[in-house]
């Protein structure tokens, strides 16, 4: 797809851009895993570290922005090169959002009381597992320019939505039965919502990966 360019520096820039994006992805992925870990174990120290680490992600995003703008301004890329740069710009923004959601989950760790009693707390990790899997796969798809894997990620989003609905119902009935825990349960509702959004964002990235690889947008119809 991206053949060697006459201007060698262009190749180097693109490689660096891809490296930066995957580095951001790695950070977002670990932030998500860590936030869930902190939530389940009530580990506020870990949660604080995740909140602090989000700054690195922000710094990387602006580095991607600068580099992408520089590439466009200096090298005036065409066709698939342009697609690659535009996709990188967009993906960086979305990955940064995923990191923000993880940070938001980490921020809520201190506000949940009596975590052992909550049944939804046993469902959330399973939901987060699917979302984290999506984030992981979509980054692998980006690294490998694998359109087929990107499609699989898009198909996974249904699972996260199903989880969200079941957790939502679960939490609402829990709140009705135990009004004392409403404030904690409401926090969990937000956590579930954040995870659901992360799934949506992973789907977005998958669409962009698909676009960067093929030049088409994935169709909605399911394969086989």
């Amino acid at each position: 797809m991206i053949s060697e360019h006459t201007v060698k520096a262009f190749d180097e820039d693109i490689t660096r851009l891809r490296g930066l994006i995957t580095e951001m992805g790695g950070l977002a992925e670990t932030a998500l895993e860590g936030a869930l870990d902190a939530l389940i174990r009530g580990d506020e120290v870990l949660a604080e570290r995740i909140v602090a680490d989000d700054r690195k992600l922000d710094a990387l995003e602006s580095e991607v922005d600068r580099l992408a703008v520089k590439i466009i301004a200096l090298r005036a890329p065409m066709a698939d090169d342009l697609r690659e740069v535009i996709a990188a710009l967009k993906i960086a923004g979305v990955v940064e959002r995923i990191g923000d959601y993880a940070k938001n989950i980490a921020k809520r760790v201190g506000r949940i009381e009596g975590r052992t009693r909550f049944e939804p707390l046993t469902l959330l990790p399973a939901m987060a597992d699917v979302a984290a899997e999506m984030v992981h796969d979509v980054l692998t798809a980006y690294a490998a320019r694998d359109a087929a894997l990107a499609r699989e990620v898009i198909a996974q989003d249904k699972k996260v939505d199903a989880f969200y609905n079941s957790i939502f119902r679960n939490l609402v009935s829990h709140m009705v039965e135990n009004p004392a825990t409403i404030s904690s349960a409401a926090q969990l509702l937000f956590v579930a919502r954040n995870i659901e959004r992360i799934g949506d964002h992973a789907t977005n990235v998958a669409e962009m990966v698909y676009f960067a690889a093929t030049g088409d947008y994935p169709l909605d119809e399911e394969e086989n």
């Binding site: 995957t22 580095e23 790695g26 950070l27 692998t140 690294a143 490998a144 320019r145």
Partner: peptide
């Protein structure tokens, strides 16, 4: 890691913050 890693930035192959 996949055939694609050759010629790529190492971060594409190993993206975990600790590895980076």
């Amino acid at each position: 890691l996949g055939h694609h890693v050759v010629g790529q930035d190492i971060r594409v192959a190993l993206r975990h913050p600790r590895a980076i």
